[in-house]
Design a protein around this nucleic acid. Structure first.
Lengths: 210, 210, 210, 210
DNA sequence: CGGTAATCGAGACGGTACGTCATGTCTTACA
DNA sequence: TGTAAGACATGACGTACCGTCTCGATTACCG
């Protein structure tokens, strides 16, 4: 195979007719619209091709599968997700700065439907799973790691804290409500959740017995 | 339609040839095996029918879709999940009693793959979503609610606690690791997670500022 | 098998509950109506059972297959086809007496549709073919044979005539129009057809060279 | 739909991948073989696809139904049926030249089984009926018309003859034996049949009374 | 007159084919 | 070489029908 594939990157100019960047954007746009309207399962590649005014072959030249396209489309649509958490001085403020934009972004649209579909695919296809985590999981964990490390550096929380566990305690409840939908995912829940986790982490006199 | 469909119940059949219970079990068994081996997407109704020694029409007579069948099959396979949490006296012990069997059950097999597939379907089909929650979400929440209420009654935790939030804090991190697979879901993580949440809930001298 | 089947006859009394003749008639009636409305292919046994107010098992106790039922139903509906050809003295008159009632009967309703379906089945299943011919072909040939034999006895036509060929010449063109539908099958065509055949059979001076 | 369907023609394809003529032939060939072996009812589209080494979708892309495919397949297999009747000078010779190749063709193989199945379908579906007549009925009638007209032009038979009726008298008996199978369809029968019809048509002294 | 043996209504069931649809590949002609 | 158009293999889908079966309820007759 001569062209770089999978999750698309802009190729270096080669011989022959160059790939059209405009078409790539049209495909991503069309794919995202259809995903929003119908979800992944009900979005066919033919439909994407038609709405983008593009042939199926062109799509498959950029992405190897429908799922990879969906991953890219969702990721591209979220690129406007805003800047990373600013260093605001307290752990609580930084945790909220991390979590709130995500809640706003995700609670609004039909993101849960698309995300769970990608999640399911990630369980079936290990390679896709890697891509999924690299796009949607690790970036947020990296940000969170930085937040907790800064708090440790400031002395806000003990150095002995298991940061990985703390990250799961931070994000887990939010994803839980997003995916299962048993109760609303809103700013109030985010605050309560963050506060409780924080209370569990911050140093205190009596610790729970092992 | 005269017969109850979707999630099967065992009504009192009066007229006509009665449904074969043996075949129902064979179908559920075959479905579960295939789900374990291949996941939901790669399990075809034809394959289920063949392995169960049953015709496709028979399956569709009792389950409206592959997803509802998978829901039933997984649920039936988990019915041996063991007794509910015993009243062990302390909140921590009861939380662990709730969570540990689930972790063992889920971490062992390929449950995550099946569960995420069902989750994705639940997002696409509201009716299925209800069935999903009624089978896999609400029962555990009910148990957890009872656990927290007992702790309140005992005076272990303040009555003002938002139990629903607490439940999400308990289960969220566990599901998070199960679904995203970025780190192991084991007993150690369960203990740490429970302890931190507990520390966040239990009364202390200094509370976090609002 | 204890009961006489295939083309049904009224059985001799045996032990146990006797078969209901009324139900048999209801089945034949329902079958004929549906055949008229939809043709054989679009008539399902379930539909016959429902319209007759009878269970499928009852139908299959009388007839071995849908086709045999259809054969019986059409035959029963035609039993009112009128008396056999009267001996009217001339060959031409008797031929017309033979052919005209059939033309009237067949040209009116949707018989061609049913008959061709039975014909097709007769080609696939030799046993059914025998039943078909015994019901719809041989009776008419027998009548025609008698007609020609009387004409020979009267000296109207030479004894050397091949009666079997003559019968095919008489009926062939009529069936041709019935089945192919390229031109109307009416009394005028029947007369012309009969006259031409007659002219070919009656003795003349010059015969065609061999 | 942009492509011509039903009975295939060979248009000038412009855009996109052109239809594979080899596959078309493979389908027609496979269909004809299966029709010969099993008849129309027992020939499944899956079986045709498998034997032709082709997907079912490809078959349905070009033929709307099994029956239209069968029509095409039988027609294609008969295209080698030989040249049209030569002008041999006498009506009798030309009638025989018309009829004999058909008798040979049809009496040999299992054509009757296929033809009656198509006939039955023609009765159920008017559109198919048109196609059937256009392929299997009208061409032969056209040839026969020409034969009779030439005979009239030569003065062999009176101009007042009803040619349409004559054609039915010519073909009717042959189809009759083919379809009903009560007696052999062979060259001897064809000769006798033609001679009798001829005798009924040719001018004579005494005509039958009205 | 009560037991026995068949028929009957209802409907579950195995099997088989149907015709449709979506994925991802391939084949043309054109740009 | 990239692209639009669209044919193609593969394989699952959910439906429909046939003819068989399994129940419980019904009806005759026969002892």
């Amino acid at each position: 195979m001569s062209a770089p594939k999978g999750i698309a990157s802009t190729p270096a100019p080669r011989r022959g007719r160059p790939r059209s960047e405009a078409r790539k954007q049209a495909i991503l746009q069309a794919a995202f619209e259809l995903l929003e309207e119908r979800g992944l399962a009900a979005t066919s590649m033919d439909a994407v091709a038609e709405r983008a005014g593009v042939s199926k072959a062109t799509i498959y030249r950029w992405w190897d599968s429908k799922e990879l396209l969906a991953l890219d489309a969702l990721y591209a649509a979220w690129d406007t997700a805003g800047p990373v958490a600013r260093q605001t001085g307290t752990l609580r403020a930084e945790m909220l700065a991390l979590v709130r934009p995500w809640v706003r972004l995700v609670a609004a649209g039909p993101s849960a439907r698309i995300l769970t579909a990608l999640l399911a695919e990630a369980q079936n296809d290990p390679a896709f799973g890697q891509a999924y985590r690299a796009h949607f999981v690790e970036p947020r964990r990296d940000q969170a790691r930085a937040v907790f490390w800064r708090a440790i550096a400031r002395g806000e929380i003990p150095a002995g804290i298991d940061v990985e566990v703390a990250i799961d305690l931070l994000w887990g409840p939010l994803y839980h409500r997003l995916f299962h939908g048993h109760a609303p995912l809103n700013d109030r829940f985010a605050r309560r959740s963050v506060d409780t986790v924080l209370a569990g982490i911050l140093p205190r006199e009596t610790t729970s017995p092992d």
